[in-house]
Each structure stands twice: as C-alpha cells, then as structure tokens.
Design a protein around this nucleic acid. Sequence first.
DNA 1: AGACGTACCTGACCGC
DNA 2: TGCGGTCAGGTACGTC
Length: 278
Amino acid sequence: MPELPEVETVRRGLLPALLGRSLSRVVVRRADLRFPLPSDFGRRIEGRRVLAIERRGKYLLIGLTGGSVWLVHLGMSGSFRFGADAGLLTHDHLVIGTDAGTLIAFHDPRRFGFMDLAAADAIDRHPRLAGLGADPLSDGFTPAYLRSRLAGRRSALKTALMDQAVVAGMGNIYASESLFRAGLSPARAAGGVPAHALARLTAAIGAVFADAIAAGGSSLKDHVQPSGELGCFQHSFAVYDRAGQPCPGCTCDAAVTGGIRRIVQGGRATYYCPRRQH
DNA sequence: AGACGTACCTGACCGC
DNA sequence: TGCGGTCAGGTACGTC
C-alpha cells in the first residue's frame, strides 16, 4: 500500500493521536521485521513524548524527547491500526499505549517494514535518509532537479523514477499514474527526455500525489477505517491494474486497440496507454 | 556509478 | 476442499 501519498496520509492520521503525547507503554511482540529492531527498542522509546511527526519520501520520522527520532518504513504491507484495545491481531508486531489511553498497533503481515532509532542532530546522515532525492512535495522538486538527476541515465524512465534517489516516495503505482498524466512512455530512456517533457512530468507527479493525498484525507475524515487501519483508502487509478480497459478520456475502441497495456520493467508491472503516451 | 537479478515474508487468488 | 503456482504497492545486496 504505501507510497508517498499513503505514508503522508498515515502521518496525518497519527498526528492527533500522538503529537504531544507520551508513549507510556510500548510492547514489542516481534522484533524481527525486515531488519531486527534496534536493541532495547521498546525500553528506549517508552516514556518519551512525541515532539513532531514528519515524512521524507516513504519514511516517517517521529521526533521524541531525549533527542532521538523513531524512524518507520511501512514496507509493502505495514500499517498503523487503532482499536487494538478491542483485541490484538496476528501480525500486530508492536503495540503503543499513550498517556491519553489510545492504543495503536503496528501491523505488518509481510514484515517488509522496518524501524530504527537515530539521533535527531544527525538525522540527515542516517544511511536510509542520506541518499534520498527530492521529495515531490518540497520546493526542491523542479524540472531542473529532475533533469539533473536523470541526465546520463540509460534505464527506462519509469524504472528511474522509482529510484528513491531520484524521486523520494515514488512507488510502482504512482510511477505509472504520473507517466500517464504526463503523456510519456514508461519505456523511454530516462536520460533522453527533453526539458519541456520533464516540466510536464514534474507537474504531473505533483498533481497525482496531491490528488491521492486529498482522496486519502477525505476518506480519512473519521480517520479510523472500519478495519481500524490508517491510510488504507479506496483510490481509483487511471491505468494501474487496468490492462485491456480504455484509459480515461480515451476515444478509441479498447476491444480493437487492446486498451491499457501491461508490461514488466525491472520485474515490476507497468501500465500505460500506447496511444496517448510517447 | 549504474543496471540487473535475487532475496526477504505472508496472504490472496487462480486453475486444476 | 486441497494444492501448487503466481502475484503483490517495499528495499538491500551481490555481481557485472
């Protein structure tokens, strides 16, 4: 589930429950996520107060009193779940109780998620964050930036966009969606895209992410889903997982043209419209 | 440095 | 109903 828009939605959902609160009780039920939790993880965050919840790319940065930052990556299947007081589920690996009485579980069936603790004054040098490219919601994400990062790259444009050093927070779904919105073929050589097309792409990425966050935010009004999960919302995609269907606004007959095409790039599924993306 | 394949883990789904 | 194969929105790491 989690690409940038989902992580941002999770961040916003966690804010009212955690900001300014103490993590009064922390129970580690499974320490072996994608990587082992830091030693004494539970003891080291227990009793700390949450000063800030930020996001860089797909990483959540939860600033705590005592000068440490709790770093969270949701991996492929991680989520935070309210309502753990009604009972824990399989794959609730971490349970947090706040001084307001809220219980929040970190739930991750595939255990591709991971966490770390870092010193706040050295957070920029954290190995997971140091190599991240510009976040598309930041001022630094410009056509000129994208051009400098893609220059000389021979890989396919879609593959390059998913490199976290190029677009922090880009994932497989929104890479296809952004390229559709920009009218660019995912198979183009990344280094050969002209400036005017990169300007379109920069805007398309921003718009696709903004729309997805808006959709998440609106469906998150009650901010606890029926499942109790944060950040899981229905979102309709223009091309992703729609092979054979007509793309939005298409005038051609999908039965004749074949509609949206699915290809595999770097082992990942890519969806695009061969007639409207070049 | 960049590009590519593989590994990690569980669950859902499909065809037989 | 059961079983094997395939696929899934993530990153890291070894190798070329």
